[in-house]
Design a protein around this nucleic acid. Structure first.
Length: 921
RNA sequence: GCGGAUGUGGCGUAAUUGGUAGCCGCGCCAGACUUAGGAUCUGGUGCCGAGAGGCGUGGGGGUUCGAGUCCCUCCAUCCGCACCA
C-alpha cells in the first residue's frame, strides 16, 4: 500500500471548502499581506498546464505568509467580458452570459482540483451588475473630473466651472484637448449645450472625434495596446484608421505621474522599461512658424532639438493637419488632395511596410522662419504622424536622418548647424559639436544652445520649452455587445451621465449580437434603450480593461453595495503586496490599472498611489511538440534516426500518445482514421519521434491538460513539478516525463512517516544532531528561497532533505512535524494529511512556520578544495574554526601538496577561511 | 534601427557576495528483486583519454592568486517598441 493521493486530496479539498479554511477578514491584530493573481478570462478551452503556473507560485507564497503570521488576502475572480464569448454568440445565438457562466464553472472545477487557498467568498466577475455598478460609477467620476496641473491631481469639474465664470480659461492650467481662450463674459454668455461642449475638452472621460484603430472584421475600434503591427491582438484581423466619435480616457494627464511612480515599485527592470517606452517622454520645445501671407495662422511644431532651428529649411505637416487646406496654393490643390487621399486609404500595415520609401507633396505654401525671416516651403508627408506632438515638424535635414532623406528626394537645401559631421553625406544627429550658422547660438555647445534658444523663444513669445509624450489617450468605446454599458444618455446630442442612484445600468437583451443595418452597435437593437424621460442611452460599451482596472480594490470589500470599497477595508488592505501574472499586460492592463488607481487616489477612494507594490511575471510554459516522419506520397512513417534515408516530411503528433519520445503505434493508428493502415519503419523495434519547443497550442497537438496529470499523479505532484521546472520568471518547455521524479518524492516523503505496512509510525524520541542539522538546513534554505521566489530550488531542497532523512532512517516527530508544515505550502494536501496524522485538529494552514537555529546550520568540518594556480588538485577536511595560518600549515604539510609542489616553494598561499585554499607556484 | 532579457551535460536546471562548475530531477548504463516490467530498490553517468591527465559555462580578449559570475568585443535566440520629430 502506498500513499492514496486521490482519496486524500479529495478529502481535504472538501474539508477546506466546508470549513472555509481560507476565509479572511480585516484583523487589526495581524499584519496584512495581499497576494493577487491576474484574474483569468474564462475561455472555452479550459486551463492547460501553463495557466496555473503563476497561481501555484502565488499560492505557495500566500500559504507561507499565512504560516509566518500574516493575515493574507488571496482572492480569485473572472475577467468575464470579452470577445470570444461574443463571437460565439454571433455564431450560435447563445447569450454570452450563458457561455461565460459555463466556462467559469469549468475553470472553477479545474482550479479547485489544484488545491488553492483562495477565499472564494470574495470572488468577483466583471460582468455581474453589482460589480460593474462600480465600473460605471468610476466612469461617472472620471467624467466629472479634470486634471489640474497646478494641484497635480484630479479636481471636480464644478471647480473648473467656477473658475470659468470668474476669469474664463486664460489662467487655467489643466490637461485638455486643443481649445481657444475665452473670457468669463464669453463663458457666461454660453448656453448649457455650449458650456458642456467646452467642458468636454477638460473631462478625464471625454467624447471626441478622432482617428481611431478600426477593425472591420471585429466591427469595433481598438486601443493602441490592442493593435500590434497593424493587426488586432485578439484574432489577428487587419486594422485601419477611421475618423469616429468615441469616448476617451485622458490617461495622458497622468503621464508624468505614471512615469514617476515606476521608481517606487518593485517590478522587473524590463517591465518598467517597457512602460517607460510606452509613455515615451521627450523634452523639447514648441515653436510657432507664421504662415506666409496670413495674419493669424501659425504652424506649431514640436522638436526635441530647438538648437537646430537655424537648420530648418522646410516644414512638413501630417496629411490630416488642419492647416493643410488653408496653406495649399490653388495650383497644387489637385496633387495635395490626391496625396491626402492616398495616405488616408493606407492601412496601418501598409504604412509600416513603406517606412523606408520617401513620399510627400509640396503644398505651394510657405512659412516664415521665426529667426531668419526667410520663406521656407511647406510639404505634407505621411512620415509625420497626426497623433504625435503637433502633427507638424520643422525639418532639419542636416541633423535628422528622415528629414535628410526627404530633402535629398525633393532637392531641398541642407544647412549644417552643428559641427562634427558631413551633412552632405548624411544627417549628423549627435549632441556633440559646436553650433555654426546659427546666429546668436554660434560657438555654443548643444546643451547651452538649447538653454539659450528656449529662453529666446519665451522672450519673443514664439514658442516655449515643452515635454511631450508618446502615450495617447485611451479609446474607451467599443462597438460591441458583451461589455459594460456606459451610464450615459444624450439630450439633443449632448452627453450627460446618469445619476448614481440609477446604477447599475444593466446590459439589455438584444435579438442579435450584430451591428444594426445602419452600422450602429448591437445595443442600438435593444428595446426601450433610453432613460425614463425618453432620452437615448449610449450604445457603445466599455472595453475589456474597464472591468480589470480596479478589481483588486473590489476584492477588499466585494459585497459592499454603497461604496466601491469601505474606508476600513481599504485602509487595512491598502494595495497589492505581490501581484503575479504575465508580462503581456505590460502596456495594457498594468498601465490602465495604475492610471485608474491614481485617479481613485486623487478622489480619496484608494490610499496608495501605486496599486501593485511588487510584481512577478511568470514565464510562459512552452509546448514540447513531437513529430513523426511520413514518407512523401505514402502512408509509411520512418523513425527519427532513419528518416534521412527516405524522402520524408515531419507531421505533428499528439504528445499524449508519445512517451519518452517513443510513439505508441497502436494509439497512433487510432488517433486519426487516415493512419489506420499506416506502416512503420522502426529502429530497435521502436518508433522514435523527433521533438521541438513551440508555443503550447491545439494546432501543434502539444497541449497538456492539468486534469489528466492530477488524475494520474495528484495535485501536489503537479504543483511541485510546475515549480520544479525552473525559475518562475523564465520561459521553459513543458515535458511531462520529468514529473515522475517529484511523484517519487511525494511517496518517499510519505514513507518517512509510515512503516513498511503503510502504518503511521512517528517516534517521539529526541532527534540526533545529524537529523536536526538536516532539518535546520532545510528550513533555512526553503525559507530564503521562498522569500526570493526561487521555488524550483526550494523543491530541490525538499528532495535533498527527504533523501537524507531516508538515509538516516529518521522518523522522529521533532523533525517530521516542522517538515510537514514547510511542505504544506507547496503540497498542501499531503501536508495537511501528515499534520493531521500527527494529531493536530486545526489546519496546517495556520500552523507556525518553523524557524532555524543558525548554530545548527554550521558545519564542524570544512572540506577545503586545494588548488594550485587556480586548478583544484585535492581536497582536505579541516575543523571549521581553523585559523588561516593553521589551514596553510596543514595543507602544505599534506602528502598531496608535496606531490603538486614538486619541490618548489609556493610564491603565495591564499586561504579563504571556510572556502578555499589556492597555492601559487 | 532602438531598448530589454537569455546563452551551463542528451534534457529541465543549480552554483544568493568573484572561491570545489554541474546540486536536484529526467533520460541513459549496470546490477538486485521479479513469470514479467513502462513497478520498486542500489550504484554509475560533463567531454576526451586505457591511464596519468587534459579540456570544459555561446566565440574572442581583459582584470584577478582565482571568473559561469566583473569589464570590452563579437555571435545566436527570445521579447518589447518602431517614420515619436
Amino acid at each position: 500500500m502506498e500513499y492514496n493521493f486521490r482519496e486524500t486530496e479529495k478529502k481535504w479539498q472538501r474539508h477546506w471548502k466546508e470549513e472555509k479554511t481560507y476565509r479572511v477578514y480585516v484583523d487589526h491584530d495581524k499584519p496584512k499581506y495581499y497576494v493577487l493573481d491576474m484574474f483569468p478570462y474564462p475561455s472555452g478551452a479550459g486551463l492547460h498546464v501553463g495557466h496555473p503556473l503563476g497561481y501555484i507560485a502565488s499560492d505557495i507564497y500566500s500559504r507561507y505568509k499565512r504560516q509566518k503570521g500574516f493575515n493574507v488576502l488571496h482572492p480569485m475572480g473572472y475577467d468575464a467580458y470579452g470577445l470570444p464569448a461574443e463571437q460565439y454568440a454571433i455564431q450560435t445565438g447563445q447569450h454570452p452570459a450563458i457561455t461565460t457562466e459555463k466556462n467559469i464553472q469549468r475553470y472553477r472545477e479545474q482550479l479547485d482540483r489544484i488545491g488553492f487557498s483562495f477565499d472564494w467568498d470574495r470572488e468577483v466577475r466583471t460582468c455581474d451588475p453589482p460589480y460593474y455598478k462600480w465600473t460605471q460609477w468610476t466612469f461617472i467620476q472620471l467624467f466629472n473630473h479634470y486634471f489640474d496641473h497646478k494641484t497635480g491631481k484630479a479636481e471636480p469639474v464644478s471647480k473648473l466651472e467656477d473658475t470659468f465664470a470668474r476669469s474664463g480659461n486664460l489662467d487655467v492650467d489643466a490637461a485638455c484637448s486643443p481649445i481657444d481662450y475665452f473670457t468669463a463674459v464669453q463663458w457666461m454668455k454660453m448656453d448649457e449645450k455650449e458650456k458642456r461642449h467646452v467642458l468636454m475638452h477638460y473631462r478625464l472621460a471625454y467624447l471626441a472625434d478622432t482617428y481611431v484603430n478600426w477593425c472591420p472584421k471585429l466591427g469595433t475600434v481598438l486601443a493602441n495596446d490592442e493593435v500590434k503591427e497593424g493587426f488586432s491582438v485578439r484574432g489577428g484581423h487587419p486594422v485601419e484608421q477611421k475618423k469616429m466619435k468615441q469616448w476617451f480616457l485622458r490617461i495622458t494627464a497622468y503621464a508624468e505621474r505614471l512615469l514617476g511612480g515606476l521608481d517606487d515599485v518593485d517590478w522587473s527592470d524590463s517591465l518598467k522599461e517597457i512602460q517607460r517606452n510606452w509613455i515615451g517622454r521627450s523634452e523639447g520645445a514648441t515653436i510657432f512658424f507664421p504662415v506666409k501671407g496670413s495674419e493669424e495662422d501659425r504652424i506649431e511644431v514640436f522638436t526635441t532639438r530647438p538648437d537646430t532651428v537655424y537648420g530648418a529649411t522646410f516644414m512638413v505637416l501630417a496629411p490630416e493637419h488642419e492647416l493643410v487646406d488653408k496653406i495649399t496654393a490653388g495650383e497644387y490643390r489637385t496633387e495635395v488632395e490626391a496625396y491626402k487621399k492616398a495616405a488616408g486609404s493606407k492601412s496601418e500595415r501598409e504604412r509600416m511596410t513603406e517606412v523606408k520609401t520617401v513620399s510627400g507633396q509640396f503644398t505651394g505654401g510657405y512659412a516664415v522662419h521665426p529667426f531668419t525671416g526667410q520663406d521656407i516651403p511647406v510639404y505634407i508627408a505621411d512620415y509625420v504622424l497626426a497623433g504625435y506632438g503637433t502633427g507638424a515638424i520643422m525639418a532639419v535635414p542636416g541633423h535628422d536622418s528622415r528629414d535628410h532623406a526627404f530633402a535629398r528626394h525633393f532637392d531641398l537645401p541642407i544647412i549644417e548647424v552643428v559641427e562634427g559631421g558631413n551633412v552632405e553625406e548624411g544627417a549628423h544627429d549627435d549632441m556633440e559639436g559646436t553650433m555654426v550658422n546659427s546666429g546668436f547660438m554660434d560657438g555654443m555647445d548643444v546643451p547651452a544652445a538649447i538653454r539659450s534658444v528656449n529662453r529666446k523663444l519665451e522672450d519673443k513669445e514664439i514658442g516655449k520649452k515643452k515635454v511631450n509624450y508618446r502615450l495617447r489617450d485611451a479609446i474607451f468605446s467599443r462597438q460591441r455587445y458583451w461589455g459594460e454599458p456606459f451610464p450615459v444618455y444624450y439630450k439633443d446630442e449632448t452627453p450627460y451621465v446618469l445619476p448614481e442612484s440609477e446604477l447599475p445600468l444593466e446590459l439589455p437583451p438584444v435579438d442579435k449580437y450584430l451591428p444594426t443595418s445602419e452600422g450602429d452597435p448591437p445595443l442600438a437593437r435593444a428595446k426601450n434603450w433610453e432613460t425614463s424621460d425618453g432620452w437615448p442611452l449610449e450604445t457603445n460599451t466599455m472595453p475589456g480593461f474597464a472591468g480589470s482596472s480596479a478589481y483588486y480594490i473590489r476584492y477588499m470589500d466585494p459585497r459592499n453595495d454603497n461604496r466601491l470599497v469601505s474606508r476600513e477595508a481599504v485602509e487595512y488592505w491598502e494595495n497589492v503586496d505581490l501581484y503575479v501574472g504575465g508580462a503581456e499586460h505590460a502596456t495594457g492592463h498594468l498601465i490602465y490599472a495604475r492610471f485608474w488607481n491614481k485617479f481613485l487616489f486623487d478622489i480619496g477612494i484608494t490610499v496608495k498611489e501605486e496599486p501593485f507594490k511588487k510584481l512577478v511575471n511568470q514565464g510562459m510554459i512552452q509546448g514540447r511538440s513531437n513529430f513523426v516522419y511520413r514518407e512523401k506520397g505514402r502512408n509509411r512513417f520512418v523513425s527519427l534516426n532513419l528518416k534521412d534515408q527516405y524522402d520524408t516530411m515531419p507531421i505533428h503528433v499528439d504528445v499524449n500518445i508519445v512517451e519518452n519520445d517513443v510513439l505508441d503505434v497502436e494509439a497512433f493508428k487510432k488517433w486519426n482514421p487516415e493512419y489506420k493502415d499506416a506502416e512503420f519503419i522502426l529502429e530497435d523495434g521502436k518508433y522514435i519521434c523527433g521533438w521541438e519547443v513551440e508555443k503550447m497550442s491545439k494546432s501543434f497537438h502539444n497541449v497538456v491538460n492539468p486534469d489528466d496529470l492530477i488524475e494520474k499523479y495528484g495535485a501536489d505532484t503537479l504543483r511541485l513539478y510546475e515549480m520544479f521546472l525552473g525559475p518562475i520568471e523564465q520561459a521553459k518547455p513543458w515535458d511531462t516525463k520529468g514529473i515522475e521524479g517529484v511523484f517519487r518524492f511525494i511517496r518517499k516523503l510519505w514513507r518517512l512517516y509510515h512503516d513498511q505496512q503503510n502504518r503511521f509510525a512517528v517516534a517521539e524520541e529526541p532527534a540526533t544532531e545529524k537529523e536536526k542539522k538536516v532539518l535546520h538546513k532545510t528550513i533555512k534554505k526553503v525559507s530564503e528561497d521562498v522569500e526570493r521566489f526561487s521555488f524550483n530550488t526550494a523543491v530541490s531542497a525538499f528532495m535533498v532533505c527527504v533523501n537524507e532523512l531516508t538515509d538516516l532512517k529518521c522518523n522522529k516527530r521533532e523533525i517530521l512535524e516542522p517538515l510537514s508544515v514547510m511542505v504544506s505550502s507547496f503540497a498542501p494536501h499531503i501536508g495537511e494529511e501528515l499534520w493531521n496524522l500527527l494529531g493536530h485538529e486545526d489546519s496546517v494552514a495556520l500552523a507556525d512556520y518553523p524557524s532555524w537555529d543558525e548554530e545548527m546550520v554550521k558545519d564542524d568540518m570544512v572540506l577545503y578544495p586545494v588548488s594550485f594556480n587556480g586548478k583544484t588538485r585535492f581536497k582536505m577536511e579541516l575543523p571549521a574554526g581553523s585559523s588561516k595560518e593553521e589551514v596553510e600549515k596543514q595543507v602544505l604539510g599534506a602528502e598531496d601538496a608535496q606531490k603538486w609542489l614538486q619541490g618548489n616553494t609556493p610564491k603565495k598561499v591564499i586561504v579563504v577561511p571556510g572556502k578555499i585554499v589556492n597555492i601559487v607556484i
